[in-house]
Design a binder for these strands. Structure first.
Lengths: 234, 234
DNA sequence: CGAGCGCTTGACCGGCGTCAACACCCGTGG
DNA sequence: CCACGGGTGTTGACGCCGGTCAAGCGCTCG
């Protein structure tokens, strides 16, 4: 048994008022008074690629906000295989369910190095009843998570292998550079799309041959979208 | 074009205090004071099978609680086919997303005659900030919906056609009579599991032949689970 | 009693899974 | 600096599951 390298680091306490992505996250429209009500420090953390943020059923310490990187939500299926139910990206909240049950419903694993801040449950419970601004934001985050989940099912787990890979390419576009998209290890992509890794590889190669994608690196993680329309109508 | 029969009926105003399934729903632990804060009547409604409760993108009037029957949540996919993302059952809340956006993210259609009550958005907005009891319930409903969505993806849209049909049979067990389960029109089942209706039919027949299921009616809607273990390890 | 719809079953074929070989990248150690 | 080896991605051959097309059957309802 090879020991799993747990690789996470505490980077200090967050300064939420001056957070670079504050407008995307839970604390977007808190006022000075709201911030004054935060009595427990919010930790700034970094997780290495493949490091778990938490595991399924674990008792929750807090809820995470993803500032940089990507995180996969993994569930154990009945027959023991790994199923990736969603991939979270900057601005997303990780482990919202802990607010209702104090436990996590799935396992969260960093896909690449992930920068997060961890907000203690107590802070959120207190603020959600005392700040209508946070209350509203929280509702929006719940709605966003549910919509993401449904989208993931409707868009990525539907139709032929080619359609699924094309849909994933479109979903994983870089928000800042919409012509570029991020892929993952082929077996992870297989677990997202419910197809085998060889099929993933074949369909990517096929889309590259057809001029829809162009590889940007030699590891097969980053591609340029050279024909968006072609991808959309797969 | 065959006109769609809109078939819904208003059955009066709900008496939430004496609701038969109150312990399952949003108003479970409201007190007398909370009820006093409800200034808009809550409508009691019945929708016929195949009638839509609302459509995708529609401006929301309120949120529904399902008291009896089943409702499917349908999304349009990129290529125009129908995809069923979830089936809701008694106690579930329908259209929660309206609380955040005042619009519905999918279409809701009654699978069989459905009895619901419609709670106006204003009532929920008011109570969720004034009653910690509703606030907590609401959080639980969000968490439940998200878990359902992820479960649906992980359990039902994974593996072989046989596994999917078996998983659906187990998920649709009758809560009161766990040995019985409900199926749907074969094309609806196909849209839930992302397989074709002929394949659904074949796999059901096969499970019946193998002694895992036994048909209870001649329409193929109700089956007895005669070998639970066999279903689980498909 | 007949028409029509939905469920079932069969035959055939294509897409995807399986197994295997190979290429390539990268880290390690000589 | 190069040789080596493991891990990961790609590609090929082949077989099977499930999609497609079609026919037949049994309900239900007019």
């Amino acid at each position: 048994m090879i020991p799993i390298k747990i690789d996470s680091a505490w980077k200090g306490t967050s300064d939420c008022r001056n957070c670079g992505i504050r407008d995307m996250v839970l604390f977007a429209d808190l006022n000075e008074q709201d911030f004054g009500e935060i009595h427990t420090p919010i930790d700034d953390m970094v997780f290495a690629a493949d490091a778990p943020l938490y595991t399924e059923g674990e008792t929750a310490v807090g809820v995470f906000t993803l500032r940089k990187g990507m995180v996969k939500l993994v569930r154990a299926t009945a027959d023991g295989r790994e199923r990736i139910v969603r991939v979270l990206r900057p601005g997303d909240v990780i482990g919202l369910e802990a607010l209702a049950t104090a436990r996590y419903d799935s396992e969260a694993i960093a896909l690449v190095e992930a920068h997060v801040c961890r907000i203690p449950l107590s802070v959120l419970h207190h603020l959600s009843s005392n700040s209508p601004r946070l209350h509203k934001r929280l509702m929006q985050k719940w709605q966003g998570a549910l919509k993401d989940a449904d989208d993931w099912l409707a868009d990525l787990n539907f139709g032929s292998a080619r359609q699924r890979v094309a849909a994933l390419a479109l979903k994983m576009r870089d928000p800042d550079q919409p012509d570029f998209t991020s892929f993952f290890a082929r077996d992870d992509m297989g677990a997202m799309l419910d197809i085998k890794l060889e099929t993933v590889s074949r369909e990517i190669s096929s889309l590259v041959r057809d001029g829809a994608l162009k590889p940007c690196d030699k590891q097969g993680r980053r591609y340029e979208i050279t024909n968006e329309v072609l991808l959309q109508r797969q």
